[in-house]
Design a protein around this nucleic acid. Structure first.
Ligand code: SF4
Ligand code: SF4
Lengths: 158, 158
DNA sequence: CTATCTCGGACAGAACTTATCCACGTTAGG
DNA sequence: CCTAACGTGGATAAGTTCTGTCCGAGATAG
C-alpha cells in the first residue's frame, strides 16, 4: 500500500497558497520546496482539475486557492492527487472456481469487501477532519510562530 | 493509493483454511479460487513468513493456520501481504528550499505527517477489529448458511 | 530407499509511477 | 503590435513496483 509521493507536495503547496494574496507561479512553488519544477506542474494541474486551485494564465499568472483554506480538507488534496479509487479492489473471486457463487447471490459486496470499505471510510473521515488552515496553524506552532510570517515575507519579495 | 491485489487472495485463503482440519496444498487453494497457482504460492509464502500460517512440506503437506481463526485479524493478513510500511512517506521537504527549517527544529514528524499517520492508525484500528473467524461467519450468512458446509465438503473430498 | 509431493527463492515480464521536455494558447505590459 | 511570462496538454523515457512463472531443495509416505 502506497500513496503517491506528490501528495506531500500538493499539501505543502496548498499551505503556501493559503498565505498568498496573489497568484503564485508553479516555478516559484517548486523553488520554495526545492523540488522538480516540471513534475510539480503536473500535480498542480491535478489540483486544478479537481477545482481546489484556480490557474490564471499569462503574465503575472499563477495558482491561487478557489475557496477559504478552512474549507479545503486534507482529504480533498489527497483525492485530487492520488485519485479517489478505493485501495481495495474486489476481483469477485467468489464467482470463480468449483464452488462459485451464482451471480444472483452477489447483489451486494461480500463480507471481505465490506470490511475493507469500512476501514477506508474511517481513514477518509480522519483526513476530512483537518483543513489546510488547521495545518498552517500547526506548522506555525511547530516552528515557534515564525514560519508563516517568514513565508509571507518570502512571497512578497517577488 | 492502491493495495496489492494479493490481499484479496490471502484473506480468502485464510477463511478457507479456518475450515480445514488438515493441511491444504497451495495448488488446491488456487484451484478453489480459480486463480494462478504459482503466484498464489508467493503470497502464501508471505503469510508463512509473517507467522500466520505454517507450511508442512512433503507429501500430504500444505498450509494450515498457526492459531485460532478468531485471533487472526484482517489487519494481520493485510500487513503480511501488503507490507507494513506506511502509505504516506515523508520526504522532509521542509528541510529544503530557501526557507528550510534547520534540522534541530525537526525532532518530530511535522504536522502533515502527523495527520497522515493518525488517519492510517484509524484505518488499521478498523481492520484490527475483524477476525478471520468473523469473516467466515459473515460469508456464511450471506450465502444463506450453505457456504461453509459446502466448503468443508469440498475440502474433505481430497 | 525412492518416487513423489510440497514449499521456497530466484528469475523474467507487465504495469504503473515518476520525471522531463516541448509546442501551444493566453495574458499583461511596453 | 510585440515580447516576455505563465499554465496546459501530450508525447516520451527512466525507474520502480507489482504480477506471474520457473525450477531446485527438502521432506514425507510407502
Ligand atoms: S468474497 Fe468479497 S472480496 Fe472476495 S471476491 Fe467476493 S466480493 Fe471480492
Ligand atoms: S512538513 Fe511534514 S510532510 Fe512536509 S516534508 Fe516536513 S515532515 Fe514531511
Amino acid at each position: 500500500m502506497k500513496m503517491s509521493a506528490g501528495v506531500e507536495w500538493g499539501v505543502h503547496c496548498c499551505v503556501v497558497l493559503s498565505q498568498a494574496q496573489e497568484p503564485v507561479p508553479a516555478a516559484r512553488l517548486a523553488e520554495f520546496h526545492g523540488i522538480s519544477r516540471t513534475y510539480l506542474a503536473k500535480n498542480l494541474q491535478q489540483l486544478s482539475r479537481a477545482g481546489l486551485v484556480r490557474a490564471t494564465e499569462g503574465r503575472d499568472g499563477g495558482y491561487e486557492l478557489t475557496r477559504a483554506a478552512s474549507s479545503i480538507t486534507v482529504l480533498d488534496v489527497v483525492q485530487a492527487i492520488d485519485g479517489d479509487q478505493p485501495a481495495f479492489r474486489c476481483t469477485e473471486i467468489r464467482q470463480r472456481g468449483p464452488l462459485a457463487s451464482p451471480p444472483e447471490e452477489c447483489t451486494r459486496p461480500c463480507g471481505v469487501a465490506r470490511v475493507m470499505a469500512k476501514a477506508e471510510q474511517a481513514w477518509r473521515s480522519s483526513l476530512r477532519e483537518v483543513s489546510v488552515a488547521d495545518l498552517a496553524v500547526t506548522v506555525d506552532k511547530d516552528s515557534g510562530r515564525t514560519a508563516l510570517t517568514a513565508l509571507r515575507g518570502w512571497l512578497a519579495e517577488g
